[in-house]
Amino acid sequence: MKDGPHIARIAALIGDSARAEVLTALMADRALTATELADIAGVTKQTISAHLAKLLDAGLLAVENQGRHRYFRLAGRDVAQLLESLMNVAFRAGAVRLRASPREPALRRARVCYDHLAGEVGVQLHEALLRQGYLHAADEGLAVTPAGAEWFAHQGIDTTAAARQRRMLCRPCLDWSERRHHLGGALGAALLQRLLERGWARRDKDSRVLHFSAEGELALRAWLAPAAGEAASNEPPRPLAARGRSGR
């Protein structure tokens, strides 16, 4: 007897190269037009229309009409989580691109994972929050400590309000490039939003890459440190993602 949902149709849809490029581009939680997605996927407008129709029919994408334009985005966080999980498996299995994009180093350093911070910077922030006792492991994934609630409030984030959202408050999300966890959930999204609102980081227009300003680098260093036992230094702060990495 065959049990459970039939996954072959969804797997086949995602498995197409052009559709995979479309879904990956929309991992930045930005709505894009069919023309923009055709350029990203390297196909004609007629071809992208057929691909988008299939993804809409399967419930993987949603569309919003605004004036003369139609904007496409992922249908929800569950789709983004599925794609991120596939990226983890693909990376572990060695299914990498033969020719890396010039943006690859920046993508690994800091990027948007649907609505939260990922890459080296995201992993470092998650580990610092655990190390400093603001988060701790719990049966459901992660929980905020009283000290953590106070720290988040100082950043302008109300953990009580975040907990009322129809999603997990905070969860570890396995980072495909670092093979360690970054912070997902409502708090992960709120932290990324604060970084953008304060002008500490900005998104690349056509990718998931995040770039940090000099002020953002310094502010994030203050978020992360000092770690227990880390000696004080009069040296200028190193770039955030360089902590603990050698030979890079």
Rank of each mutant, 00 (worst) to 15 (best):
V63M: 10
A62M: 13
K45Q: 12
V112F: 00
C173N: 06
L240H: 00
A106S: 05
L61C: 09
E215R: 15
E140F: 09
A143K: 10
Q46D: 14
Q132F: 12
D16G: 08
V209R: 00
H211Y: 11
R9M: 15
V144A: 00
A93N: 08
P102L: 06
A11I: 10
T47L: 08
F152M: 00
W223Y: 05
S85M: 13
Q165F: 06
R238Y: 00
E127D: 12
V43I: 11
R171C: 12
A75H: 03
H6C: 15
E215F: 05
Q165A: 08
A58M: 14
V123I: 08
L191P: 01
A41D: 03
N88G: 15
L82D: 05
L169R: 01
S177R: 06
A241P: 00
V121N: 01
L192F: 09
D115C: 02
L52I: 06
P5S: 14
H51A: 04
G244S: 04
L56K: 15
D139Q: 12
N88L: 11
D115R: 03
P102C: 03
G184R: 00
G76D: 01
R103A: 09
N88S: 13
G199E: 07
T24G: 05
D139N: 14
L117A: 02
V123M: 10
A186H: 04
G141S: 11
R202L: 04
S246L: 08
L240R: 00
M27G: 06
L86E: 05
R166C: 07
P5K: 11
H154L: 12
L52A: 01
E230D: 13
A153R: 11
F72A: 06
R238A: 08
T47Q: 08
G184C: 03
T44N: 01
G94N: 07
A80D: 02
L86P: 02
A93R: 06
A100V: 05
E230S: 13
R180Q: 08
R171F: 07
L174Y: 04
Y114R: 01
R68L: 15
L60H: 10
L82Y: 07
L26G: 05
V43P: 03
I157Y: 04
E140D: 07
P105E: 15
A241Y: 04
V22M: 00
A20S: 11
P237M: 07
R131I: 07
